[in-house]
Design a protein around this nucleic acid. Sequence first.
DNA 1: GAATTTTTTGCAACTATGTTGCTATTTTGG
DNA 2: CCAAAATAGCAACATAGTTGCAAAAAATTC
Lengths: 150, 150
Amino acid sequence: MPRVAASTEKKITALLKRQALSVTESRKRILQYFLDQPGALSHGDIEKKVGTTFDRVTIYRTLQTFVDRGLIHTIPSADNAVRYALCKDECGDGHHRHEHIHFVCQQCHHTFCLDEVVTPVLKLPKGYSPRQVEVLVQGKCKDCTETAKK
Amino acid sequence: MPRVAASTEKKITALLKRQALSVTESRKRILQYFLDQPGALSHGDIEKKVGTTFDRVTIYRTLQTFVDRGLIHTIPSADNAVRYALCKDECGDGHHRHEHIHFVCQQCHHTFCLDEVVTPVLKLPKGYSPRQVEVLVQGKCKDCTETAKK
DNA sequence: GAATTTTTTGCAACTATGTTGCTATTTTGG
DNA sequence: CCAAAATAGCAACATAGTTGCAAAAAATTC
């Protein structure tokens, strides 16, 4: 019996229900995919993974729904491929609260949330009112640095 | 006689020549467009402006060339529309040096380089080596704040 | 300054990405 | 299990980005 899988399934269902979302196959699979890996995912990544099972349009709409409900957040990119990552509990229906920065590895091309690094407070020129600060760091990630040493 | 226009023309030609680029109509017009306004431009913006005169493909290639030669730099976005802005003199063929942050106005949707705001130095978790830091601030820009007051 | 070489452009065709309207299917709640 | 509501899939479309190739323009050479 797949005990672990069953418990993940429950967790996923709970997450969806908490946001008053219908529990559908596509939503479960896509959410599962996010939980199964540590990084951020683009629409393309998800389509490659489940594109034969679900329609492209369904994936677009699912991602949009997840963003709206505060399950995932978007991460800007320099390559026209917006990525999505799971939110922490503070986010919810219609609002996001994120203070962390994002890291893009130039070697493995994965994107990660660095939850422990808080976005800095910036002094802007007179007249500019900041509402949200997004920090995107490019470099070499932990895994790639470690495997390089071996 | 269009004295100003003529001097701009010379400036543009000089900019192109400095990077050992052929001086062509499309390159002049696109560079002109960047100089004529203070913000950042997306491929779409440029196509709207000069798309009847020049082919879409030419615009793509021109932008890529300008990036390669250090004339313009890319600005990541959260909406799958990478923007480009003029570089300062420190950039050149094959290398970019940018320490400034970018500001996206949520009202007028323009993107600006805030050259006077330097990207912060961040303390990253062990194992992560940063190579480049990109800061994207969203909020209300100077112009939109001022016009709102009236 | 004309001829030759080199570079760039435009076109066509194609792939990828993202959107919308509508109908069929699934999910939910009684 | 049934009716209502929500979601998924399909088709068609719109936009974005790429590649190869021949024609045109710019740079170079004499």
